[in-house]
Structure formats: structure tokens, C-alpha cells
Simulated assay, not measured.
Amino acid sequence: MPAKTALVTGASSGIGEATALELHRLGYTVYGAARRTDRLRELAGHGIRPLAMDVTDDASMRAGIEKITAETGRLDVLVNNAGYGSYGALEDVPLDEARHQFEVNVFGAIRLAQLALPHMRAQRSGTVVNITSMGGKIHTPLGGWYHGTKFALEALSDCLRLEARPFGVDVVVIEPGGIATEWGGIAADTLEKSSAGGAYAAQATAVASALRSEANAKRNSPPSVIAEAIGKAVTARRPKTRYATGFGARPLIALRRVLPDRAFDMVISRAVGLPG
């Protein structure tokens, strides 16, 4: 039997990089995808195959899937990890930026699933792993567009799981909590660009400070925690539909489930330094 093949998007750093290494350790032939392959050189040194891919460019995605299947004859795991956090008040964020957030976080992931599924169906096996977030179950101030993408990807994953099950294909959702990556700094930068100078400036200052907080960063989990969860999911005979892991994920999701809306609003507001 040939080695199973995995594609990991957003593999140049953080969760994607750690996942590519973990799947390689588990014996997969791993393609690590990113827009710039120069950022994949270190992974290539570990045996990961670098792949140039932009999840907002359909031709790029089609070419990537074709390359993988031509070289290996199969595709067993798709890890949709590429994404970013675009923060800012809903009133302030330009719709072009909002659309781009959805293009990267939602449409790119689902388009890759569309391209991968024919190969998985033909094999009667495969796993699509969609990285959402605890942000797909909870909400925070000034994170509306980001949370919208993650809520959407959660729902799409549930529907896809039902559709793909008769063909032997599993769909798994990974819901990271706080992870030690570049994500918080990028989200804070987009927040300040959108809302630091207007009516929401006070909120923007507080939320950006929380996103960059060194105290919070020290509590965040390493990306390897998510990579290990993905490894467990793709090697399980019957994986769980969801894996919530990383700092704060399980307690915050549970809290959202039991608290009334306004009570949860108060908890989250206070957590980011805003009046409850």
C-alpha cells in the first residue's frame, strides 16, 4: 500500500506547520501549502513537500490538487487551516475586507473540499479537517466578521459530514482555543486599522490590548496541541465530529452553552477590559 497523502494549507507557520510535521511523523506523504513557498523551506528540510497555493485563487487550488493526485495517486487528508482574523466594528470594516475574510476562511476551505472529494469518494475513504475556532461557538466585541466566518464553517462542516458519510469520507471540525501563533497580533493590527480612530476607538483600544496581552500569550497553548488533535482524528477508526482543545476552548464553549446571552456578553466584555 502506498503511503497515505495529506494536504495542509496555511503550512508556513503556527498550527499548519505543526500539523504538517505531525502528519509526516505519522507516516503520511504531506504537502504543505502556502502562498509563498520560500516560507516552507524549513518544512521541506523535514521531508514535507512544499506547494504554492492561494486559497482565494481557484486555478491555484485546482493545480495543487492535480499535482498531488498526479504524483501520489491519492488524497487521504485535507486540513483546511489557512485563515486569519479580521477585527473591527461591523460598522467600520469595509465590505471588500469582509468579503476577503470570507473568501479566505470559508470559500477557500469549501472549494478545496469540493476539489478533494471526488478523489476521496473514488477511494471510498478520506478525511476533511476544517479548522474553525472556539470563535465559531462564541462571540467577542469587534470580531463580527471573523466570528461570522467561523460560525459559517461550522455549519457547512456539519452539512458536509452528512453528505460525505455514505462515501466513506469523514468530516472533522477542530476548535482551537488560545494558541501561541501570530494570529492575535494580526487581528489587533486589522482592528486598529478599521476602528482605532472612530466612534469605537475606546473598544478598539481595549480589545487590541487584550489581543496583544503578554499575560494572555503566556497562557496560550502551543500549536502542537492542535496538531496532535488532528493526528488523533485522522488516524481514528471513527473520529469525533469535533475536537475543542487549546487554552480556554472547552470552558468557554461550555459557558456559552449554559449562560443566557446577556450574561455571556458581560463575561466576555469584562474579559477584554470593557464594562460589563
Rank of each mutant, 00 (worst) to 15 (best):
G144E: 06
I48N: 04
I65T: 06
F167H: 10
V77I: 14
V106A: 12
L21M: 13
F247S: 11
S125W: 01
A210V: 03
A34I: 02
P223G: 12
K67I: 01
R250C: 01
Y84V: 04
T235G: 09
Q101C: 07
Y28D: 01
Y31R: 13
G231A: 04
A263S: 14
F167L: 02
T56N: 10
I15A: 07
V104I: 15
G27N: 09
R165H: 13
L259H: 02
A89M: 05
A122G: 09
K218M: 07
V171G: 01
L90F: 15
V258F: 12
A152D: 02
E103T: 09
I15Y: 04
N220S: 12
I110D: 11
V171C: 00
F264I: 09
L21H: 08
M1L: 11
M266S: 15
A229N: 08
Y87N: 07
G27P: 12
S13F: 00
A89N: 14
V169Q: 00
T5V: 15
V258N: 04
S12K: 09
V106I: 12
Q101G: 02
I268L: 12
L43I: 00
V172K: 00
L274A: 10
R250I: 11
A201I: 03
K232P: 00
D57Y: 07
E154H: 05
D92A: 10
T235M: 10
P239F: 01
G144P: 08
A98M: 15
E66D: 15
P166W: 00
K150F: 13
G47A: 07
M61P: 07
V207W: 07
A109T: 06
M120E: 03
Y243N: 02
E71C: 05
P118W: 00
A254N: 08
I110A: 08
A204I: 03
R62S: 10
P223D: 05
T190K: 13
T140E: 14
Y200I: 00
G64D: 09
N105P: 02
V129L: 04
P251C: 09
P50Q: 08
S12Q: 11
E22S: 01
G14R: 11
E228S: 14
G177E: 03
F247T: 10
L142C: 04
A11V: 09
H147K: 04
L162C: 08
G276E: 06
T127M: 00
K67G: 00
V207T: 12
P260L: 04
G198P: 02
G143W: 03
V171E: 00
A201N: 07
T190I: 02
V172C: 06
